[in-house]
Protein backbone atom coordinates (compact mmCIF):
# COMPACT_ATOMS: atom_id res chain seq x y z
CA UNK A 1 0.00 0.00 0.00
CA UNK A 2 1.33 3.43 -0.83
CA UNK A 3 -0.03 6.77 0.29
CA UNK A 4 -0.95 9.62 -1.98
CA UNK A 5 2.26 11.42 -2.90
CA UNK A 6 1.48 15.13 -2.75
CA UNK A 7 2.01 17.20 -5.85
CA UNK A 8 4.82 19.19 -4.24
CA UNK A 9 7.94 17.71 -2.69
CA UNK A 10 6.55 17.27 0.78
CA UNK A 11 6.96 13.57 1.39
CA UNK A 12 4.25 11.75 3.35
CA UNK A 13 4.82 10.51 6.90
CA UNK A 14 5.39 6.79 7.58
CA UNK A 15 5.26 5.06 10.94
CA UNK A 16 8.13 2.67 11.54
CA UNK A 17 7.89 -0.65 13.41
CA UNK A 18 11.03 -2.63 14.22
CA UNK A 19 11.43 -6.26 15.25
CA UNK A 20 14.47 -6.20 17.51
CA UNK A 21 15.16 -9.93 17.36
CA UNK A 22 13.59 -13.13 16.14
CA UNK A 23 10.67 -14.21 18.26
CA UNK A 24 9.60 -10.68 19.28
CA UNK A 25 6.87 -8.50 17.79
CA UNK A 26 7.47 -5.43 15.73
CA UNK A 27 7.35 -2.39 18.01
CA UNK A 28 6.70 1.22 17.04
CA UNK A 29 10.04 3.01 16.80
CA UNK A 30 9.04 6.41 15.41
CA UNK A 31 8.17 8.04 12.13
CA UNK A 32 9.85 9.51 9.09
CA UNK A 33 9.16 11.12 5.72
CA UNK A 34 9.65 9.26 2.45
CA UNK A 35 8.26 9.51 -1.07
CA UNK A 36 7.39 5.81 -1.32
CA UNK A 37 7.50 2.50 0.56
CA UNK A 38 10.91 1.45 -0.77
CA UNK A 39 12.53 4.70 0.32
CA UNK A 40 10.66 4.60 3.62
CA UNK A 41 12.21 1.19 4.35
CA UNK A 42 15.70 2.36 3.47
CA UNK A 43 15.32 5.55 5.49
CA UNK A 44 13.96 3.53 8.40
CA UNK A 45 16.99 1.23 8.27
CA UNK A 46 19.36 4.21 8.30
CA UNK A 47 17.45 6.08 10.99
CA UNK A 48 16.28 3.38 13.40
CA UNK A 49 18.74 0.49 13.04
CA UNK A 50 22.21 2.06 12.98
CA UNK A 51 23.26 -0.17 15.87
CA UNK A 52 21.76 -3.53 14.98
CA UNK A 53 18.47 -2.64 16.65
CA UNK A 54 16.46 -4.71 14.24
CA UNK A 55 16.13 -7.81 12.09
CA UNK A 56 12.93 -6.71 10.33
CA UNK A 57 11.14 -3.42 9.64
CA UNK A 58 7.56 -2.50 8.79
CA UNK A 59 6.64 0.91 7.43
CA UNK A 60 3.00 2.02 7.36
CA UNK A 61 1.62 5.26 5.88
CA UNK A 62 0.66 7.33 8.92
CA UNK A 63 -2.73 8.22 7.45
CA UNK A 64 -3.56 4.52 7.00
CA UNK A 65 -3.63 3.97 10.76
CA UNK A 66 -7.00 4.11 12.47
CA UNK A 67 -6.85 4.90 16.17
CA UNK A 68 -9.25 5.10 19.06
CA UNK A 69 -10.56 8.53 20.02
CA UNK A 70 -8.47 9.97 22.88
CA UNK A 71 -11.45 11.99 24.14
CA UNK A 72 -13.58 8.87 24.47
CA UNK A 73 -11.01 6.69 26.21
CA UNK A 74 -13.16 6.40 29.32
CA UNK A 75 -16.16 4.93 27.52
CA UNK A 76 -14.15 2.99 24.99
CA UNK A 77 -12.17 1.07 27.59
CA UNK A 78 -14.99 0.81 30.11
CA UNK A 79 -15.85 -2.84 29.59
CA UNK A 80 -12.87 -4.40 31.46
CA UNK A 81 -13.30 -2.00 34.40
CA UNK A 82 -14.37 -3.74 37.58
CA UNK A 83 -13.85 -7.19 36.10
CA UNK A 84 -10.98 -8.20 38.33
CA UNK A 85 -12.06 -11.81 37.97
CA UNK A 86 -10.34 -11.79 34.59
CA UNK A 87 -7.00 -11.75 36.42
CA UNK A 88 -5.40 -14.72 38.14
CA UNK A 89 -4.70 -12.54 41.19
CA UNK A 90 -8.48 -12.34 41.86
CA UNK A 91 -8.47 -15.94 43.05
CA UNK A 92 -6.84 -15.95 46.48
CA UNK A 93 -8.20 -19.13 48.02
CA UNK A 94 -5.67 -21.25 46.16
CA UNK A 95 -2.72 -19.40 47.76
CA UNK A 96 -0.04 -21.80 48.94
CA UNK A 97 -1.18 -24.58 46.62
CA UNK A 98 1.77 -25.60 44.51
CA UNK A 99 1.95 -25.35 40.72
CA UNK A 100 -1.32 -23.43 40.55
Amino acid sequence: MSPETPAGNVWPIWEVFVRSSRGLSHVHAGSLHAPDAAMALRNARDLYTRRNEGVSIWVVPADAIASSDPDAKGAFFESPQGKDYRHATYYTKSEGVKHL
Partner: peptide
Amino acid sequence: GTWVREAAAAYARKQA
Protein backbone atom coordinates in the same frame (compact mmCIF):
# COMPACT_ATOMS: atom_id res chain seq x y z
CA GLY B 1 19.38 18.50 -2.37
CA THR B 2 16.39 19.95 -4.24
CA TRP B 3 16.87 17.82 -7.34
CA VAL B 4 17.12 14.67 -5.23
CA ARG B 5 13.84 15.43 -3.45
CA GLU B 6 12.16 16.28 -6.75
CA ALA B 7 13.44 13.15 -8.46
CA ALA B 8 12.37 10.88 -5.60
CA ALA B 9 8.89 12.41 -5.52
CA ALA B 10 8.56 12.16 -9.34
CA TYR B 11 9.67 8.52 -9.28
CA ALA B 12 7.18 7.70 -6.53
CA ARG B 13 4.36 9.36 -8.51
CA LYS B 14 5.29 7.51 -11.67
CA GLN B 15 5.38 4.15 -9.89
CA ALA B 16 2.03 4.84 -8.23
